[in-house]
Design a protein around this nucleic acid. Structure first.
Length: 774
DNA sequence: TTACTAACTTAGGACACGGCCG
DNA sequence: CGGCCGTGTCCTAAGTTAGTAA
């Protein structure tokens, strides 16, 4: 099945990164070549589908996914219930939204002479030094505190981690116990619910408490009952953010109509942003060029020689940049090292914050440098100028008693200083591309603050286990509800649960046109008789989701009904949006939202698949893990683009493989002859080979065979994974405790599965018992 | 009810790095 | 010992969700 052929091509050339994966059993991929091979303008291609059977609802669905070649609809041999999933991107969509494009555009900034930086000094000067109190007026009281901590900084991270961990563990265990005892009986549902609720509250409390305890442990100082809700920290110190260096003009002249042009530094800076991207596919897109030109023009001014984009030739700057790059690359390693160290020395102080007396890493302490916006997919704003952010654009959040970071640019000051301990950000600024959005500076993933919330995320997902049977039963029942809203909620919940779709918020017109469950349009789902659905739409990051799945007949019917009387571009679930859906979910389980299903399904799938770890050697065991990981990635539709050398690499491997096979044949011939006492034949170049004993030849043959097998396997894995990104699910969806426990059971060093960043991110999960089950 | 704001999680691509192979 | 290639890090875009305001 020519998958490729059936793929829809995106209308308007959407960018999609998908690619085909054809994997599944044996097979395939070849048919789908990578046309998209070239860079980015890739065409969409299908990825493989997964399917899962129709479900029967009530069971514990463990699902797992089996991927199959796309089109087939299901056959699941796989087993019983599993989630279905698949992916593939494609384009096609058309809906429209209202827009507000005009507002932000060019006109605006021109007001003051553009050339000077866009930053408008005037308005800005009112930085308030004063601090704003926590928005909610929450207890500031608590901030009082330790008057400066004393050094606990470098600390016992581990220690505190473990202390918190143990508490967590307890909670977890408790919970696990409860659920195991109750969980199985599907019937006690109602009661269970009540219990669960209570449990959850308890859990929440403990979690909050833990924080305090931790703190105490670390330092023995004050321990105030900060239980107030929403309080995220008591003391917070940090050094603010670091700015990119000011622009240094290079003086290389671009050509206009064939002639060199003089540009002011500000003009040149923007021209350079474009020049540098000359060889990306962005620079070939009309929209990118138009947005860039619209934003650059005002900096040139009305009377500039440069009047039309088409006559601009940026190659001199491009070439200059390429040379610079080359120069940097060719520096000696010592020199590189030195530069790196220098950079580190400058940045060191920005890399850390002290939160409640504990030194924690800051995530993104570097302010984003100016550049041209690289929106993904068919983004209406691609190419727009992302202006330089200055101190007066930045709001700092810091403890009341902490020293306010010195503004690194002389003569300027921060926009505002806040002391809001109900949030975790250290600083933010307004996004220059989207006036309604902010860019935040947060702590790194390894911080305790992030770790705690990560753990809570997984605990919430585990709580869903106790409700899932009931939820599935309910939505199955409502598939044929006469209340259309109820019916849509049921079907949407089903899709989110079984296909791991995202919630699907509405999007503005000035964003790429992508959808999730609630925002699916009629053209995104096609009925395939007798009872399958084909999904084809662009999801987050304009990644194509392409999957054909067999579903409950009632769902099939319901979708048919939902589509009836609508035209392309109409909402499939016209009575739904994410708010309504989440509101409904919250009525079922406290704080349940659509995204919890993704976490739940990813984690439970991993947990279940890992139960059949059958490998004997460590290598095989790890391969089992990767297979499980891959299923999860497929379920979640985590894709990556095929690396540009992929097909060439495969060909090379193919060639090598052939060579090996020839060698093998030759060896076999030689062996035959050797057994008969004859000398080996001449080799391919006609040279005489030396005699070898049959034993030696046999040994060689075995070795060669092994080599071939390994290679064949490697090639398959490689081809199989060329479009699947395993990392995303590992970082965000699979409860690390599942992995840690599995490692303990199978004596696999955790480092074989988690790299350094993951190890520190998941420090909170390291102590689990080997028998932990999600 | 809808619209918007704010805060935080999730995501893939670019690029740096370092081990490996001929 | 230079280039290849896979992995890890960085970067920042693009989602979700809670809460508030209109």
């Amino acid at each position: 099945m020519p998958l490729a052929s059936r793929l829809p091509v995106t209308a308007k050339g959407k960018v999609v990164k998908g690619s085909p994966i054809a994997k599944s059993g044996k097979d395939i991929s070849a048919s789908i070549k990578d046309e998209r091979g070239s860079d980015k303008a890739k065409a969409p291609e299908p990825k493989q589908p997964i399917h899962y059977e129709s479900d029967d609802d009530d069971k514990p669905l463990a699902h797992h996914v089996q991927r199959k070649p796309t089109a087939s609809i299901v056959d699941d041999d796989s087993d019983d219930d599993k989630p279905l999933a698949t992916r593939l991107p494609s384009g096609v969509k058309t809906y429209q939204r209202k827009d507000s494009l005009p507002k932000t555009v060019p006109g605006v900034k021109q007001e003051s002479s553009p050339q000077s930086k866009p930053s408008t000094p005037s308005s800005v000067k009112t930085p308030k030094i004063s601090s704003t109190m926590p928005s909610s007026g929450k207890s500031d009281s608590k901030m009082e505190v330790d008057g400066d901590d004393d050094e606990d900084d470098d600390i016992p991270l581990a220690q505190r981690m473990s202390s918190s961990t143990s508490i967590i563990k307890k909670v977890v265990q408790q919970k696990a116990k409860a659920s195991s005892s109750t969980g199985s009986t599907a019937i006690a549902a109602r009661k269970l619910l009540e219990k669960k609720k209570a449990k959850r509250l308890q859990l929440q409390m403990m979690v909050t408490k833990k924080k305090v305890i931790t703190k105490t442990t670390t330092k023995s100082k004050k321990v105030e009952p900060v239980s107030g809700d929403g309080v995220k920290w008591t003391t917070l110190e940090h050094n603010g953010v670091i700015f990119p260096p000011p622009y240094e003009p290079h003086g290389v002249k671009m050509l206009y109509d064939g002639k060199p042009v003089d540009l002011t530094p500000a003009q040149e800076e923007i021209a350079t942003m474009f020049a540098v991207m000359l060889e990306t596919d962005y620079a070939k897109k009309e929209r990118f060029i138009k947005n860039f030109w619209d934003d650059w023009k005002p900096y040139l001014g009305k009377n500039h020689v440069i009047k039309k984009f088409e006559l601009c030739d940026f190659t001199p700057i491009f070439d200059w940049h390429a040379r610079e790059k080359e120069r940097k690359k060719s520096m000696s390693t010592e020199e590189k090292k030195r530069l790196k160290e220098e950079k580190l020395a400058v940045e060191e102080k920005y890399m850390w914050a002290v939160v409640d007396g504990v030194k924690e890493k800051v995530g993104n302490f570097r302010v984003e440098p100016p550049g041209l916006f690289r929106g993904r997919g068919d983004h209406p704003k691609m190419g727009k100028l992302k202006t330089r952010i200055l101190p007066h654009d930045i709001v700092i959040n810091i403890g009341k008693d902490a020293a306010v970071p010195e503004c690194p640019i002389p003569g300027q000051r921060w926009k505002e200083i806040r002391h809001d301990n109900t949030v975790t950000w250290l600083a933010y600024w307004k996004d220059p591309i989207n006036d309604k959005e902010f860019k935040y500076v947060f702590l790194a993933a390894s911080s305790s603050l992030k770790g705690q919330s990560d753990m809570q995320k997984y605990e919430k997902a585990r709580m869903l286990k106790d409700y899932i049977d009931d939820i599935r039963r309910t939505y199955t029942h409502d598939f044929s509800s006469s209340d259309p809203t109820k019916q849509q909620i049921a079907v949407a919940t089903y899709l989110i649960d079984r296909l791991a779709l995202r919630a699907g918020n509405e999007k503005d017109e000035d964003e790429a046109d992508t959808v999730g469950c609630c925002s699916l349009k009629v053209e995104h789902v096609t009925l395939v008789a007798p009872k399958s659905l084909q999904f084809d739409f662009l999801g987050k990051d304009s990644i194509r989701y392409f999957n054909t799945v067999e579903v409950d007949e009632r769902v099939y019917k319901a979708i048919g009904q939902f589509k009836k009387g609508k035209k392309e571009g109409d909402d499939l679930f016209e009575r739904l949006d994410t708010t309504k859906l989440n509101l409904h979910l919250k009525g079922i389980m406290p704080s349940l939202t659509a995204k919890v299903f993704r976490t739940y399904n990813a984690s439970i799938t991993l947990d279940n698949l890992l139960q059949d770890t059958t490998g004997e050697t460590t290598i095989e065991i790890i391969a089992d893990y990767q297979r499980a990981n891959k299923q999860v990635a497929i379920l979640c539709n985590h894709q990556r683009s095929v690396s540009k050398g992929h097909s060439a690499q495969m060909e090379r491997l193919e060639g090598k493989m052939q060579e090996l096979e020839e060698q093998l044949e030759e060896l076999e011939t030689d062996l035959d002859r050797a057994k008969k006492g004859k000398p080996p034949l001449k080799d391919s170049e006609g040279k005489v080979k030396r005699n070898q004993t049959p034993e030696a030849l046999e040994k060689k043959i075995a070795a060669t065979k092994q080599k071939i097998d390994k290679m064949r396997l490697d090639m398959r894995v490689k081809d199989d994974l060329k479009t699947v990104a395993l990392g995303t699910s590992k970082i965000n969806y699979m409860d690390p405790r599942i992995t840690v426990a599995w490692c303990k059971r199978h004596e696999v060093p955790i480092e074989k599965i988690f790299n350094k960043s993951l190890l520190s991110k998941f420090a909170w999960a390291m102590e689990v018992e080997p028998d932990f089950r999600f």
